[in-house]
Design a protein around this nucleic acid. Sequence first.
RNA 1: GGGGUCGUGGUGCAGCUUGGUUAGCACAUCGGCCUGUCAAGCCGAAGGUCGCGGGUUCGAGUCCCGUCGGCCCCGCCA
Length: 602
Amino acid sequence: MENRTHTCGELRSQQKDNQVVLCGWVDSRRDHGSLIFINMRDIYGITQIVFDPAENEKTYASARELKPEYVIKVTGKVRHRPDGMVNPEMATGEIEVIAQEYSILNRAETTPFPIIDNVDASEELRFRYRYLDLRRPELQKNMIVRHKTSQIVRQYLTGQDFLEIETPYLMRSTPEGARDYLVPSRMQKGKFYALPQSPQTYKQILMIAGYDRYFQIVKCFRDEDLRAERQPEFTQIDIEMSFVSEQDVFNIAEGLMKQIFKDLLDLELKTPFPVLSYDDALNTYGSDKPDLRFGMKIKDVSKIVAESEFKVFSTTVKNSGIIAGLNLKGKADYSRKQIDGLNNFVLQLGGKGVLFAKVRTDGWDSSIKKFLTEKMMNEINHIMESEPGDLLILIAGDRKKTMELLGSLRSKLGKDENLIGENEFRPCWVTEFPLLEYDEEQDRYIAMHHPFTSPNEGNTELFESDPGAIKARAYDLVLNGYEVAGGSIRNHNYETQMKVFDLLKINAEEAKEKFGFLLDGLKYGAPPHGGIAFGYDRLVMILAGENSIRNVIAFPKTTSALSLMDNSPAEVDAKQLEELGISISDFRIRNGRNNTFLRNER
RNA sequence: GGGGUCGUGGUGCAGCUUGGUUAGCACAUCGGCCUGUCAAGCCGAAGGUCGCGGGUUCGAGUCCCGUCGGCCCCGCCA
């Protein structure tokens, strides 16, 4: 077999008159009867091949058999395209290859969807034929971005003296946090490993072992429900450092981000990134992952309307709730339908309703106008910076809930109203998270970040008086409304760690049973340490300009955690279960389900 | 666990509100014509268990119930 001399993406007019051999897929065919054009594609690009009877009568005559996705090898000569025929849209558009001969390396049936960008196929179909989906230039580009990102991460962190160390995928199941994926043990029947939700305990152990700076690009597993930005198995850039405070971790994370954006997008991220406290983020943007690409900040008008005749306002303030709102600039022309749409959006999120005011030159147009004094409306206009033509959106209720509702509304409006600039990246740190949050269901405090997070220094007196007010030495890195990284300074002191467990109602015995190895480690000279973990898929998604992480993962699962290509999960042989000492109650009959068989029939 | 939305030739959609001849359109496919296309063009043809199951009805793509699957969201995700 004659060897490939060039890829389909590299020929330019410099190679004019070169004899070349190209291999690739037939991308498209334009048959003019006595002249055939074929676009030939590989991962590197597309090159136009011409079949002309004047060049080789026999080759031209048989070339009509070539169909999309046939794998072919073409031998021919590079030539500059005739005047006016250069295609500036194509990287190789100034040349074409005039075919002397070709061979078909493999034929292809008509594909279920065309192998093109912006394909009009359902995700269901794309997942079932993922090998075809991945052949599309769009996804190939995403996989390249993903690869490059990992190379930059390894290079950058290695340059900062980090060691890449692998940690086990088979570990013990630990309480707290997400639901574990379990792996039954054959040798220890009735016992299970868990797949790691993150290598948290291992990386702390590595710090105790004196490795100083660790990183790993590592798969993590969480058996929770999926979202556009959540998969059951996902990848983290996991980082841990000894003898550090928050600022040291920030510096590394910022340096890494800077490097990635520079190398990949040729963009200079300004450092240091702005820092917001959790409270500020919530009170200004209604979210602990604020999108800073646009303004429309939330304004609290509680004080202004506390004494109003509108019962909803006055009782809300009396019950220590708030009235707050957004100013949607220049949208006083919103129709009834659009306003109802916003109201329904909030109702769906569990809100009680939204109040609107259209600001006109002669005052407000609003259902609540009659309850408010002129002075109140003026003050609201002032604080919300409203002008005639604006639409004010107000919500009343419990502080946290109201802020969150406005935050959701804000991000929805930011997208719907195109308030977000193209190619804009606005990272920030969110800090001073609460250490704990109260879980009504379990009637106890649970760790907001994770149970190894260090409480803020100087918060010790709150342990007794008001645990909910303790701040954590935790931080999130937020980019364009996505949490792209999160971490904390850990407890390296045994006593402090036990105090936190105490707050979490994990008694000494249970702590010893579940985390004994780490707790023991803390007693043998654990250095102060802390770290951070990046959501690698999310980061690549943002870098690739995608809005679903499924487009930057080669083989993702659907929102019901199925793999449509290989039909997993699937039943296993009785023999396999027997070896594991596992018996299955017949849930399929009980639930009237038989989907596995139906799907296999396709 | 809950809410929303979608499922119709290979693909993307229309038809469903108000049940009634032969399920319509575009792209792809197949055949023919065509020497400069790059979303090629023109002419013609073939291609449908309307996701699956049940019910109502003389009659169901259309109405009802259930179920499976895709996507989005709430809960959940330390």
